[in-house]
């Protein structure tokens, strides 16, 4: 009798070999035209935490991002066209969900996030009473400088989110996070904001009952001074945040 297609494929599906020190953990790096930096990021991860599987989500880059990432030993998923940071990131979570990863680390592909902080995130996420660990550049020793408007935005919406969830959140826009267990399913669901996660998303996580923790991480100032908010006008950002926070609060307490 011929084997079924599942039998033929089982065991041959070439997923990356699991890490020995951090089993079931996946690092997701959304990148858009980061050929210059993504290689260094992957090398940095290898140096710090060894053989952890790295998944680069190429957000329709027009440069050599895919080639560079492959050459540095990362798996690459290419979106057919540029769809934005949030969509790329969520693709990583959908993949992690399909492959039953239990911990996902998200990192930016531009080299802003110091791979040396990975261990702190990984250590914190292993704790029992936590689902989401946010790497904050505003606690601890990190000397991070940014434009005034950006700092003000982070400060105001961070305070607002802290007030609402009654827990101090200093860096709601951080793209350096660790997510565990059920929270991965949540990130892959339709509740995930389609553009980019921010203070409103922290509030949503809290309403779903996920435990959030912040750890200090090191971030390097962005050389080209473009952030993931590129293309978003400041006024639209403020409008969107207020609307999103109000709407999030007015929704029925979601069941998940």
């Amino acid at each position: 009798m011929n084997p079924t297609i599942q039998e033929t494929l089982s065991g041959t599906l070439p997923t990356a070999p699991p890490s020995r020190t951090y089993p079931n953990t996946l690092v997701v790096i959304p990148s858009f035209n980061e050929a210059k930096n993504v290689g260094l990021v992957i090398d940095g991860i290898r140096r710090e935490v060894g053989d952890i599987p790295v998944l680069v989500i190429d957000d329709g880059s027009s440069d050599e991002t895919v080639k560079v990432a492959r050459n540095h030993g990362a798996m690459v998923i290419s979106l057919p066209f540029n769809s934005g940071y949030g969509v790329a990131l969520q693709t990583g979570f959908i993949y992690a969900l399909q492959k039953d990863y239990s911990v996902v680390i998200q990192m930016d592909g531009d080299g802003q996030h110091d791979p040396k902080s990975l261990k702190d995130l990984l250590e914190e996420i292993q704790r029992e009473d936590v689902d989401v660990v946010i790497g904050s550049r505003f606690i601890g020793t990190c000397q991070y400088s940014s434009t005034f408007a950006r700092r003000a935005g982070i400060l105001i919406f961070g305070r607002l989110a802290s007030m609402i969830i009654r827990q101090k959140v200093t860096d709601p826009t951080s793209g350096f996070q660790a997510i565990k267990g059920k929270a991965i399913r949540f990130m892959a669901s339709d509740f995930f904001p389609p553009d980019y996660p921010d203070a409103d998303f922290i509030i949503l996580l809290h309403r779903f009952g996920f435990k959030i923790r912040e750890v200090p991480v090191n971030m390097f100032p962005n050389k080209e001074n473009i952030s993931m908010h590129r293309g978003h006008k400041t006024l639209y950002y403020i409008f969107k945040m207020f609307l999103s926070i109000i709407v999030t609060l007015l929704r029925q307490k979601p069941r998940f």
Partner: peptide, 24 residues
């Protein structure tokens, strides 16, 4: 828009799996 987003993501994942299967 939401449907296109979902499709994009799933097409990308499927394509990656297809490629690595072919390689294999």
């Amino acid at each position: 828009t939401n449907q296109v987003r979902r499709l994009t993501q799933h097409v990308a994942i499927l394509y990656q799996e297809k490629s690595s299967l072919e390689e294999q």
